[in-house]
């Protein structure tokens, strides 16, 4: 039997190992990834589309989704500009402490998000290191600004991490050629460096945005979780679930799941296209 199997394996056109391994892969993914995702949709629709739509259009649900997207947008915008700047400086110049800066930028990936949120509270909170000197009008914590700050913190290295390797491996003679042709630094950056980074910038932005929209651990600490004021979509799901309103939680969960699916599809297909363009 085993002799037979190993014979089959080496017969051209009849590789038994291939279908078996693919089947094993799908079987492993089924309970871990695919079924949990499927149940969101199955439960979400189980009470009927009307009910789903009502849950989704509840003012607090819409507010939570909007708040998530708006705060994520600003965090992404900031981290993209910062990531681009940091990557350019670190890829182009060698200086003392360069590696230390790279490690510092990357640290937020290693810190638990709850710790990140707690750290922000200890800095900007009413009794925080700096927060204690702020007047009540300028309190940051427990406002949407705190959510943006938390998002910036936890997604800090993402755009940088995508852009930096592209810049580092870029042929330096492209920029040198541009300079000898007569371009200023800014013109070279705009006409030569940026086009080469287009794919990385879009990729970094989508990654940062997707990660921000889903942020929970830090947000729940710094936002105050006030429904209709500082409650983001993931916090809304958690709150409704705790209140036993499964349909309400589920409707927003479906939107977030579809959203992340879209982001990753774009990442997957558009990057090749952007890079080839």
């Amino acid at each position: 039997m085993s002799a037979n199997l190993s014979n089959l394996r080496h017969t051209r056109g009849f590789d038994l190992v291939k279908p078996l391994s693919v089947a094993a892969l799908v079987l492993m993914m089924l309970p871990l990834i695919l079924l949990p995702l499927a149940s969101i949709f199955i439960f979400g629709m189980s009470a009927g589309l009307d009910k789903f739509w009502d849950s989704l259009t509840a003012p607090d649900a819409i507010f939570a989704l909007k708040l998530s997207f708006v705060t994520s947008f600003w965090a992404t915008a900031f981290n993209l500009v910062f990531g681009l700047f940091a990557a350019y400086v670190l890829a182009r110049y060698q200086f003392w402490g360069r590696n230390a800066i790279i490690v510092l930028i990357s640290i937020p990936t290693a810190i638990p998000t709850a710790v990140a949120g707690f750290a922000l509270l200890l800095l900007w909170g009413p009794y925080g290191l700096l927060g204690q000197y702020l007047s009540d009008d300028y309190r940051i914590m427990f406002t949407p600004y705190a959510i943006i700050l938390a998002n910036i913190f936890v997604t800090f290295p993402l755009a940088f991490g995508v852009i930096m390797p592209v810049l580092e491996t870029m042929d330096r003679s492209l920029e040198e050629a541009s300079a000898t042709i007569g371009a200023s630094r800014w013109q070279t950056f705009w006409h030569v460096t940026m086009p080469a980074l287009r794919g990385a910038i879009v990729g970094g932005a989508l990654l940062t945005f997707a990660r921000s929209v889903g942020e929970f651990g830090s947000t729940i600490l710094v936002s105050g979780n006030l429904s209709g004021k500082t409650q983001t979509a993931p916090l809304y799901i958690f709150a409704k679930f705790n209140e036993g309103q499964i349909e309400a939680a589920n409707a927003v969960a479906v939107v977030l799941a579809v959203f992340s699916f879209l982001i990753f599809s774009i990442l997957f297909f558009a990057r090749d296209w952007l890079e080839a363009e």
């Binding site: 492209l174 050629a177 000898t180 042709i181």
Partner: peptide, 12 residues
């Protein structure tokens, strides 16, 4: 006018 070994043409 520098002609680089890699030509350094702008790929995009």
């Amino acid at each position: 006018g520098v002609i680089f070994q890699s030509y350094a043409l702008f790929p995009k």
